[in-house]
Simulated assay, not measured.
Amino acid sequence: MIIGLGSDLCNIERIQQSLDRFGDRFVERVFTPVEQAKAARRPYTRAGTLAKRFAAKEAYSKAVGTGFKAGVFMKDIGVVNAPSGAPTLALTGGAAARLAAITPPGHKAVVHLTMTDDHPWAQAFVVIEAIALDLSHSGEGDTA
């Protein structure tokens, strides 16, 4: 079942203006080391790379229903790549706690993320799915 849905549209030029004005202070405050390294490897599209990740953070905060309140901070939401290469989110702190709080008992949460950009726009969608755990093989009721 879907327990959260969020989207965001981010202007790449606005991110470039923040980079020009605040430099590393902006980057350090908002982006994880993994995200910073990814953007550094893309010097010609650095602002677009960061804008997509900014949009993903916003989309997640909407999907969990808090925005950036209730302990959910931007730096607790990091875009990483799964072994397949698909983008997903690594969550820590309040972002992880909020996901745990909205996940129904007996379920595990799976976060789906898609991002795209076409200058001057970057966009992200987050879908949070709750999957029922199979408790029939948990060993409960088994006797030795």
Rank of each mutant, 00 (worst) to 15 (best):
F31R: 03
R42A: 15
Q17G: 12
A37T: 13
L19G: 12
E35D: 10
R14P: 14
R21N: 13
A51S: 14
F31V: 07
Q16T: 03
A37G: 09
L9H: 07
R41F: 04
D20M: 10
A47E: 00
D24E: 13
R25M: 05
E28H: 11
P43K: 06
T32M: 05
F31Q: 01
K52P: 08
G4A: 07
P43C: 11
A55N: 00
L19N: 09
N11Y: 04
F54C: 04
Q16I: 02
P33H: 06
T32N: 04
C10T: 10
C10M: 09
A51I: 06
L5F: 10
L50T: 02
G6V: 05
I3K: 04
Y44T: 11
D24F: 06
R41E: 08
I12T: 12
R46W: 04
L5W: 02
Q36C: 14
S18V: 04
R29Y: 04
R29G: 14
G48H: 01
V30I: 15
E28Q: 14
D20G: 13
D20N: 15
R53W: 01
A47D: 00
E13F: 07
A37Q: 10
E35H: 11
L50A: 03
A40E: 09
R42G: 06
Q36H: 07
D24L: 09
R46A: 11
